[in-house]
């Protein structure tokens, strides 16, 4: 736990770098684990078992739209892409910005990508994708099924050791 932060940072860097390198070199080469830390303030970073999810899903396009060269699952994407070609950008964060959606980047994140408007940011892209699917396949959906709360998180949610003391009168309505 002492060096957890440091480990996380380096580990994360290495992993993400290797992930990007890996997927952009060979079509079916992918990282076994991806560490996700965009909520690392309130929650510990999540180590995503990518290999397991590759096994569990039928097609990469279920998560990666049309970018993996293995087809396309979404009808909307299919209007332009046949998904046969592997893209340079495959990792989630290559398209989904870690910055919150702002009025400026609301419409078209990059010039020329006029049908890629209304993109969720990275945090939302993960959650919408993960939770949406987990609900369908009865995967874990509770926040702490995937994330471990940090102390800052417990403070934020007023839970754990920061939980409200049992008060005699409730807050009314």
């Amino acid at each position: 736990m002492v060096n957890a932060g440091k480990h996380l940072m380096t580990g994360l860097g290495v992993l993400l770098l290797s992930a990007i390198l890996a997927v952009s070199c060979y079509a079916m080469d992918y990282p076994d684990e991806v560490e996700i830390d965009s909520l690392a303030n309130l929650y510990e970073a999540v180590v995503f078992d990518h290999a397991m999810h590759v096994d569990a899903t039928e097609n990469c396009s279920e998560c990666h739209h049309h970018t993996t060269g293995s087809g396309v699952a979404n009808d909307y994407c299919a209007k332009c892409h046949d998904g046969k070609e592997e893209m340079d950008s495959v990792a989630c964060q290559d398209c989904h910005s870690a910055d919150p959606v702002s009025p400026e980047n609301l419409h078209n994140p990059k010039p020329g990508y006029s049908y890629h408007n209304d993109q969720p940011n990275l945090k939302a892209a993960y959650h919408l994708n993960c939770v949406g699917c987990h609900q369908e396949v009865d995967g874990p959906t509770g926040c702490e099924d995937c994330h471990a709360k940090t102390e800052a998180g417990e403070k934020f949610y007023h839970s754990g050791e920061f939980a409200p003391k049992e008060s005699a009168h409730s807050s009314g309505h």
Binding site: V101, S102, P103, L106, H107, A124, L128
Partner: peptide, 13 residues
């Protein structure tokens, strides 16, 4: 919001 239930921007956009 983890799910981006809410999108912030100019109302007309």
């Amino acid at each position: 919001c983890p799910q981006q239930v809410m999108t912030f921007g100019k109302r007309k956009d």
